[in-house]
C-alpha cells in the first residue's frame, strides 16, 4: 500500500476563471466590443429593459444580445422580434451562472466585427453570477421595487461587483414600502462607486438615462485604447 501524501494546493477555486475573464476583457477591448453583464433575480425586468433600451440605442450603436435564461429560448426570440438586433441563446445546461468560458463560446456565435455593444442577460439569480467573472467590460444589475429596498444588505457580493444598479418598476413604487433613498444608502454602503439609475421598463421612464450611460461607457472604453 502506498503511503498517503499530502499535496498542498493553496489556490482559489475562482483563480482560473478570473484569469480567463481578464483575458477576455482585454480581447474585447482590442476588438472594440463593449460587453455588459446584466444580472438580476428572475422577473426583475432584464428582458423588458433590454428591449426598451435597445430600441433607443440601435441607431447609434450596433447592438447584440446573448441570452442565458435557463432552459428556454423564449427570450432570445422575443428580443429579435422586438428589436431586430443579433441575438443568440446560450445553453448553460441548467447551471445557475455563466463563467468566462461559457461567455466566450457565446461570443464566438456572434458576428463581433459588426458589434459595438453586446449585452449578456445572465441567469436570473443574485448569488451565483456575482461570484463568476464573465469577462464583461462592466457589470450591471436590476433591482425591482417589489423585491424590497433591503436587497443590498442580503446580497452584498452582487452589489459590490456592479458598476451600475438599475432600480426598475418605479411605476409601482406607490404600492410598495420601497424607499428609494434608503435603498441608495444601502447600495452606497456596499459599493460607493456604483451608479444608480431609476427606471420603469414598462413606461420607459429613465430608460433614456440608461441608454445614455451605455453610449458614454462605450465611448470611454474606446478612448482608453
Amino acid at each position: 500500500m502506498d503511503e498517503v501524501k499530502i499535496i498542498e494546493i493553496k489556490k482559489s477555486v475562482f483563480a482560473d476563471n478570473d484569469a480567463d475573464a481578464a483575458k477576455l476583457r482585454e480581447e474585447l477591448k482590442r476588438k472594440g466590443v463593449f460587453l455588459l453583464n446584466l444580472m438580476s433575480s428572475p422577473g426583475s425586468g432584464k428582458t423588458t429593459t433590454l428591449i426598451k433600451t435597445i430600441n433607443l440605442l440601435k441607431d447609434k450603436l450596433r447592438v447584440a444580445v446573448m441570452e442565458a435564461d435557463i432552459d428556454s429560448d423564449v427570450d432570445a426570440k422575443k428580443i429579435l422580434a422586438a428589436t431586430g438586433v443579433q441575438s443568440i441563446q446560450l445553453h448553460t445546461g441548467g447551471m445557475c451562472h455563466l463563467d468566462a468560458e461559457m461567455t466566450r463560446q457565446g461570443l464566438d456565435g456572434l458576428a463581433l466585427d459588426d458589434v459595438d455593444l453586446c449585452i449578456l442577460e445572465n441567469v436570473g439569480n443574485l448569488v451565483c453570477p456575482a461570484e463568476f467573472d464573465t469577462g464583461a467590460t462592466k457589470n450591471c444589475m436590476i433591482l425591482s421595487v417589489p423585491e424590497g429596498d433591503d436587497k443590498p444588505l442580503k446580497y452584498p457580493l452582487m452589489f459590490s461587483v456592479c458598476d451600475l444598479v438599475l432600480i426598475n418598476k418605479i411605476d409601482v413604487a406607490k404600492y410598495f414600502d420601497f424607499d428609494i433613498e434608503r435603498c441608495k444608502g444601502y447600495i452606497r454602503m456596499r459599493n460607493p462607486r456604483a451608479e444608480v439609475i431609476e427606471i420603469s421598463a414598462l413606461t420607459g421612464e429613465g430608460v433614456d438615462k440608461f441608454a445614455a450611460w451605455l453610449i458614454d461607457q462605450v465611448r470611454k472604453q474606446r478612448e482608453e485604447k
Binding site: M1, V4, K5, I6, I9, K10, R188, P192
Partner: peptide, 20 residues
C-alpha cells in the same frame, strides 16, 4: 466609519489534498 474593507472571509480555496 463606512470606509472599511474585508480583510479575509470570502475565500473559496483548495488548501490541500491527500492522495496515494
Amino acid at each position: 466609519s463606512e470606509h472599511t474593507y474585508l480583510l479575509k472571509g470570502n475565500e473559496v480555496s483548495i488548501k490541500e489534498i491527500e492522495a496515494t
